[in-house]
């Protein structure tokens, strides 16, 4: 199986130069479901940021979807991001756009015709059980519903890789379960690689997953 992520001697730090991740070497194969855990401030969100190019590696190599992210050009980064689905704890929905327009965003960026994109959005809204909320804006939805919109947006363009940063961190049990089901479904049915940064790995998960733990700047493969 091909590796969708290959990190070699990867070091990450912010502008204050304090090293967050120190010379980590790991790989993630295509189609796998991966959890990244660690204490608060251990660097798990930092690692995730580096996977979608929001943080440039300080040292080493980081290849995601065949694109070397150390010193990547903006156009190559845009190309990579068009094939990623990203889910954040704070949803990152465009407030002044309807939920349909939010979900449509990656489709339009990827050059889908509007009518095709609308059709896809309709299917996705059903998939995330929000078809009764059409025409609404993010602020009119609950946190759980907003996260489902963000999930639909992440799934819309059939990405090669879904990156989720504590996707259930702010949600109740029911909404959390729905999000896990959606991530599971993407991995099981579409064979999409899923990487989730979280504090707690859910017990009722029907996927064979890998588990990395970050401690003192090092990444250990637990499972």
């Amino acid at each position: 199986m091909d590796n969708v992520i290959i990190a070699k001697d990867l070091s990450l730090s912010y502008s204050n130069n304090e090293t967050i991740i120190n010379k980590a070497t790991f790989s993630i194969s295509s189609g796998s479901f991966v959890f990244i855990t660690g204490a608060s401030g251990s660097g798990k969100s930092t690692l995730l940021k580096s996977l979608f190019g929001a943080l440039n590696p300080k040292q080493g190599s980081l290849v995601v979807g065949g694109v070397e992210l150390n010193g990547v050009s903006r156009s190559k980064l845009n190309f990579l991001r068009r094939h990623l689905g990203i889910v954040f704890q704070d949803y990152k929905l465009v407030k002044e756009w309807s939920i349909e327009k939010n979900i449509m965003l990656p489709l339009l960026i990827n050059g889908y015709v509007k009518s095709v994109a609308l059709n896809q959005v309709e299917k996705l809204l059903k998939h995330v059980r929000l078809n009764h909320q059409t025409g609404k804006y993010p602020f009119e939805l609950s946190g759980g519903e907003q996260q489902r919109v963000a999930m639909a947006r992440a799934l819309a363009h059939n990405p090669i890789l879904i990156l989720a940063d504590e996707p259930t961190g702010n949600l109740d049990e029911y909404s959390s379960q729905l999000i896990w089901n959606l991530l599971e479904g993407a991995n099981n049915q579409l064979k999409t690689t899923v990487i989730v940064v979280t504090h707690h790995i859910p017990k009722s998960l029907n996927v064979d997953y890998k588990h990395f733990h970050i401690e003192y700047g090092s990444i250990h493969e637990v499972r």
Partner: peptide, 15 residues
Amino acid sequence: ERMTIMGLFGAALWL
């Protein structure tokens, strides 16, 4: 905020 979100999904600067 909107430009950042669009950037996260790979939108080119003009878009």
